[in-house]
Design a protein around this nucleic acid. Structure first.
Length: 348
DNA sequence: AACACGGGGAC
DNA sequence: GTCCCAGTGTT
């Protein structure tokens, strides 16, 4: 297909059939940026409520910069990929401190913000400033591999490089907002992964995948490998009606979130109890499996009722004793929220 | 180049 | 259950 034909058809299609009512379809770069970060590896339906709540608490980049990391993480809790929230917070402070409170206006400058890579920077530059920059996200990769019949896993470097070059060659001379939004809309509403609606697609007559009936083979799947399993025991330590939460390190899984204390097995749980005071190990609850991209985590919940807390422990700086309902609201990982919810349901 | 990083929707 | 998504940062 001619490059110009692709862009012309896409823009015309977007104006009629594309999405025009998403809350982040604005020119305010702060709102565009926030939405793009939330939408990384996360679907629109999941983002909508988080976006509204976040914007209500932090209406401007200055408000976000003035917040604490805790406040930001609490509003992010449940969305996943928490480094996005920490980077967002750092980047807000960078905009205030290094860019004099004015959001940067070029792709290369925007790309310096932590958490903003090439595609996200290009999307912000296109939506907020109408600049001629190519995006390449999951939707675009699916559309391009199908329409142009590009073989190979799009995550492989040579394939990805080819897709970037193609994406740049397709850019229209103007109308970048409609074009960029059209690319995303086509991928999200028509060029679906499982059942693409080829009859509704403006590229259908020339789409390689459609012509060869290979929609199911493109984009090429990632070769999969076995997922390792990790086991952990999570302690539901309760003292005077409050549960103990500990801050996780900023790096690694659930970085920076409050979570339950962990150990390997019930023997270690006994030792933990001896260190922390006196009380009883209740029978452990049934295992809970949490699935990640790269491994599965099998959690054994171990409730502990403390009757006395050792003085040294009660003064630990990182110990957070909270009523269960407040603990849930504090921004804990999803499986921890489930466990605390089960406790509430069981006790009350 | 490969991996780490969450959660949820679609099937 | 499996696959994959509006990706980025680290190694």
């Amino acid at each position: 297909m001619r490059e110009t034909a692709f862009a012309e058809r896409l823009i015309a299609w977007q104006r009629i059939h594309g999405r025009h009512d998403l809350p982040w379809q604005v020119r305010d770069p702060y709102r565009v940026w926030l939405s793009e970060i939330m939408l990384q590896q996360t679907q629109v339906a999941s983002v909508l409520a988080y976006y509204a709540r976040f914007l209500q608490s932090f209406p401007t980049v200055a408000a976000l910069a003035a917040a604490s990391q805790d406040e930001v993480l609490a509003l992010w809790s449940g969305l996943g990929y928490y480094s996005r929230a920490r980077n967002l917070h750092r980047a807000a402070r960078m905009v205030v401190d290094d860019f004099n409170g004015v959001f940067p206006t070029t792709r290369s400058e925007i790309e310096r913000l932590p958490g903003v890579g090439r595609s996200t920077a290009a999307a912000i530059a296109a939506f907020a400033f109408g600049q001629r920059e190519a995006i390449l996200d999951g939707n675009v990769k699916r559309v391009l591999t199908r329409v142009f019949g590009i073989e190979g896993h799009p995550g492989d470097k040579p394939v990805e490089n080819r897709l970037w070059t193609l994406a740049e060659s397709l850019l229209p001379p103007a109308d970048m907002t409609a074009y960029t939004q059209g690319l995303m809309d086509l991928g999200a509403t028509v060029c679906l992964r499982a059942k693409p609606k080829c009859a509704d697609c403006p590229m259908t007559v020339e789409c390689v995948a459609r012509l060869e009936e290979r929609q199911a083979e493109l984009p090429t799947r990632k070769p999969k490998k076995a997922q390792p399993v990790r086991h952990v025991m999570m302690l539901l330590a309760v003292w005077r009606g409050q549960v103990l939460l500990q801050r996780r390190p900023n790096h690694g899984i659930w970085g920076g979130l409050l979570s339950l204390p962990e150990c390997a097995d019930s023997q270690e749980a006994e030792a933990w109890l001896m260190r922390h005071g006196e009380g009883d190990l209740l029978p452990s609850w049934p295992e809970l499996t949490h699935v990640f991209t790269h491994f599965r985590l099998v959690i054994t919940p171990q409730p502990i009722l403390l009757s006395r807390l050792s003085p040294a422990v009660s003064q630990q700086a990182d110990a957070n004793w909270l009523p269960i309902d407040q603990a849930i609201a504090a921004g804990v990982p999803t499986p921890v929220g489930k466990l605390l919810g089960q406790w509430l349901a069981g006790v009350n």
